[in-house]
Design a protein around this nucleic acid. Sequence first.
DNA 1: AAATAGTGTTGCTTTTAGGTTACACAGATG
DNA 2: CATCTGTGTAACCTAAAAGCAACACTATTT
Lengths: 111, 111
Amino acid sequence: MNELGTYIQAKRKEKGYSIRKLAELAEISHTEVKRIEDGMRKQTSPQVLRSIATALNCPYEDLMAAAGYIDEPTVDADATAVAGIQNADDLSQEEIDKVNEYIAFLKSQRK
Amino acid sequence: MNELGTYIQAKRKEKGYSIRKLAELAEISHTEVKRIEDGMRKQTSPQVLRSIATALNCPYEDLMAAAGYIDEPTVDADATAVAGIQNADDLSQEEIDKVNEYIAFLKSQRK
DNA sequence: AAATAGTGTTGCTTTTAGGTTACACAGATG
DNA sequence: CATCTGTGTAACCTAAAAGCAACACTATTT
């Protein structure tokens, strides 16, 4: 079983779905779900991955990454985006370093 | 002709390649290149797109986006990622606000 | 115990991505 | 003029993705 199959099966069982239930939600055949989980597909189409991602309510990018179609979005990249830090696009390297220092300072001040 | 086909053909002609030359560089059949350019493929595989991107020396992500497989990387999202701000994933809202204030302060100090 | 519904699994069929070959038309070269 | 070489295009074939139908097994229900 490959990475994609492992990922999908884990998510599916986590949700308590049967193969058929997931297939129904994703509007694809249940045999296809099984074959993907078993790693019997060399090139599962992005279209199908998108359907499964929607059905599992998990990020499409994760499935694409598990399938080897894109690089894993780095944790740091996502984290900073989620964090809501604004207007950091045109900072110089010195300024970035200062911001990172400041973040470290803030964390050290936590009680 | 769809977006992907238009993009690839434009890049190909820009490089002065014939259909056959591009196919040779990408190590796929020239008929497949033509069909993709003509938009006769519903689901061109990411594998093939990767080969074409390499042959054309253009970003794979652009082809994936043109095919509708991924979203165009948003400028803002990339900007914060590129900025290199670290360990901001677990900041509280107050801390984020302070960081944003600090960034504004740094910018105001520029001469 | 028999019927029913749910589960995973497997063979068969259809559809389509991709390759191989061949065609028609140009321009260059003998 | 005839032959090669490169261009795009189209017909045919193969392999793989995806769907359909049926199987075996379990658990529940009548």
